[in-house]
Design a protein around this nucleic acid. Structure first.
Lengths: 166, 166
DNA sequence: ATTTCTGCAAAAATTTTGCACCTTG
DNA sequence: CAAGGTGCAAAATTTTTGCAGAAAT
């Protein structure tokens, strides 16, 4: 029933009328059979990497994060950054955001959300909105596709660039 | 004149009640001032590249296109492919689709549309649906952001992978 | 004739990987 | 100790660029 919004508050975990914004991808590929427990050590590098991702909303690149952590870990290596990002993505606490420039960006915002991308400066801003569940229903009916997550990128000029533009 | 027409070509036919799916990005970055007419030669390579993009729905990579055209142009170079893709994107007839793997994909579907991405096989399928215009209004009210385009990626398992899965 | 485009090759930029040693549990 | 992680460096990928000659208008 993709109807209108009931009077009460609509955001609860029970039966959402809105389609969940992409929170965490199922690691991609399939895991055939051998599903070993896969123990994981706690390391300062990974911990700080996550903190850094959580404390910003700029959707940093691996290079950004590497630079940002070099002060703390002078011998940090890029490989470590990439490997840890991969771990965090697999764990579902960090999301990859493929960007228009081709460089991958990373998003530590744990809430389901979407993005506004400025056409001029390229900045990405988080949007705390939800897409109507009706869309998933339509997908199901029209295409027999069952979508469990969605990510929407809105494009336009951000306030700053709109002012500066003309 | 004050007709709010952002840089780039945002051709809007009338007044849609649905938000336009990202048709063509305004080339990114800023367009300063010197906007020379920029003459453009017609070349077979570029023509065939576009045809190839229009004749498929697989959202090929530059490498895919390069390989696909080598039969026809044995001395084709990757540089030519990339440069022509850039031209087509700037002209607004081809769209860049940043993919999860990091490699850029290209989309020659001229209709506004969205995508369904299979979590298992990674295939991207075009969706002929539209997002409600109400979303843009909400963005405007909640964030003071004026979005003129939107691109939504829906995630889940495609039919084939759903069957094969379990 | 002049501007644009191509092929080729070298260079950049980004991400992945092998390996020896160090850490965590 | 054993499994997992790090730093380092080399390699693999993907994309960009400088140039000289070729093509288009």
């Amino acid at each position: 029933m993709p109807g209108a919004n009931p009077p009460g508050n609509v955001r609860r975990v029970s039966s959402p009328r809105t389609l969940q914004a992409a929170p965490s991808a199922p690691s991609a590929e399939r895991a055939p059979a051998a599903e070993r427990p896969r123990r994981r050590n706690r390391t300062v590098q990974r911990e700080r990497l996550l903190e850094m991702l959580r404390s910003t909303d700029t959707h940093p690149t691996a290079a950004n994060l590497f630079e940002g952590l070099r002060g703390e870990f002078p011998r940090l290596s890029r490989g470590t950054v990439y490997r840890n990002l991969e771990v965090l993505v697999c764990e579902g606490v960090v999301e990859q955001v493929p960007s228009r420039s081709g460089v991958m960006r990373y998003d530590g915002n744990p809430r389901p959300h979407h993005h506004f991308v400025c056409d001029a400066c390229g900045d990405i801003r988080d949007l705390d909105i939800q897409l109507p569940q009706a869309l998933a229903t339509r997908l199901q009916r029209r295409y027999k596709l069952r979508a469990d997550r969605v990510r929407a990128d809105f494009f336009g000029l951000c306030e700053a660039c709109r002012g500066r533009d003309s």
